[in-house]
Amino acid sequence: MEYQRLTDSYRKVMQLAKEYALQLNLEYIDTEHVLVGLLKEETGVAADVLKNFGVELAKVQEEIERNSPRYTSGEPAIAGRLPHTPRVREVVSYSLEEAKARNHQVGTEDLLLGLVRPSSDGQPNIAVTILNRLYRLTPDVVRKDVLAHLGAASTNEQREKMS
């Protein structure tokens, strides 16, 4: 992976996802943990989109914690490097593709687009299921809003350069 292409916000989201997984005493990072990371990182397009839809951190965490399997060895998870589930690896790959398609650094908006993109097996990931269950959000609706935000940001940048 081209780590230099990742924005600081992207890195922060993934760190927040890891911290949340550790808080749940899990030994892996899955899509719902990335969703929490996106909600905790309060800047950028992804945060704006999720806020505009009324997505609330506390409500998402409550849903995750009510339905999440807990690591059951009795030993706390080790704070080292937690592996990503195959779904998260796919989301990360998709986010790189999204950024490459628009020829920009990989930001939280790309991570959100990767998160809501249909998986290779056609099944929704846990984060998408939570967004749909709690907020009736579909991947298409989220994608359109992210792209609209990116288009508006691009238009505003062009206007600023012209003035």
Rank of each mutant, 00 (worst) to 15 (best):
A79S: 09
E2N: 15
V128P: 01
H84W: 13
D110P: 07
D140P: 03
Y20S: 14
T129C: 04
I78S: 15
R89N: 08
M1F: 14
T31N: 09
G151S: 15
R81M: 07
Y20A: 13
I64G: 01
R136A: 08
S154L: 12
K18S: 10
N156L: 15
N52R: 12
S68P: 00
L134Q: 01
V142T: 00
R117T: 10
S154I: 05
T31I: 03
K100S: 05
E109S: 09
E109Y: 04
A127T: 04
L24G: 07
P124T: 00
R87H: 04
L35F: 05
L16R: 05
G37A: 01
G80S: 08
L57F: 12
Y94R: 09
L134H: 01
Y94Q: 13
R133A: 11
L111R: 00
H104A: 10
V92D: 10
P124Y: 03
T7M: 02
L39E: 00
E65Q: 04
L38Y: 04
L26A: 15
I78H: 10
A99M: 08
T108A: 02
L131K: 03
K100V: 08
E27G: 15
A79C: 08
T7Q: 03
G54E: 15
A79N: 04
V106Q: 03
E63R: 06
K51H: 07
V34Q: 05
K161V: 09
K40F: 10
D121P: 00
V45L: 01
D110N: 07
V146I: 03
M14P: 01
H84Y: 14
H84R: 14
Y71V: 06
R159A: 11
L26H: 14
V88R: 00
H84A: 07
G44T: 02
T108N: 05
D30R: 08
V45N: 01
E160D: 11
S120N: 11
P69F: 10
V55D: 00
L38E: 02
K12L: 13
L150E: 01
E2F: 15
D8F: 15
V36T: 09
V55H: 03
G122A: 05
T108Y: 06
L57S: 04
V55C: 04
Q23E: 15
P83V: 12
S73E: 14
I78Y: 13
Q158D: 13
R87K: 12
V34R: 06
E56D: 08
N103H: 07
V141F: 09
Q4H: 15
L26R: 09
T85L: 10
H84L: 13
T43Q: 13
L147C: 06
E42I: 04
G44F: 07
A99I: 06
G80L: 13
L131R: 01
R89T: 09
E27H: 14
F53I: 06
A58Q: 09
M162E: 10
H33E: 05
K51W: 07
R133N: 12
V13L: 06
G44V: 02
G54T: 05
R159L: 09
Q105I: 04
R159S: 10
L39W: 05
K100E: 08
N25V: 10
Y135L: 03
Q23I: 12
L115P: 00
P83I: 03
A101N: 11
